[in-house]
Amino acid sequence: MCLAVPMEVKHIEGEVADVEIGGVRKQIRLDLIEDKPAVGEFVIIHAGFAIRILNREEALETLKIFQEGWNLDLI
């Protein structure tokens, strides 16, 4: 039940968004996030609500740190 998955935003109307991943389309609510996502962005969905917009730069940043000689103080 705790599965929270990233899905791509396809369409937004008020607090409701259509999202899609791998051909599966769903309607979800945006009540729980402050800034509304843009179409094309990914949101993390849990139990029918978006709980966060996925931050792609951060993902790349983390990978980079680990690759380039990381240490505890960097993280």
Partner: peptide, 20 residues
């Protein structure tokens, strides 16, 4: 050196989700 590290920054903001 025990710390609490956020290594899932693409989804977790340090301040969490204040609206929720």
């Amino acid at each position: 050196k025990p710390k609490v590290i956020n290594n899932y920054k693409r989804v977790v903001a340090d301040e969490g989700n204040p609206k929720a």
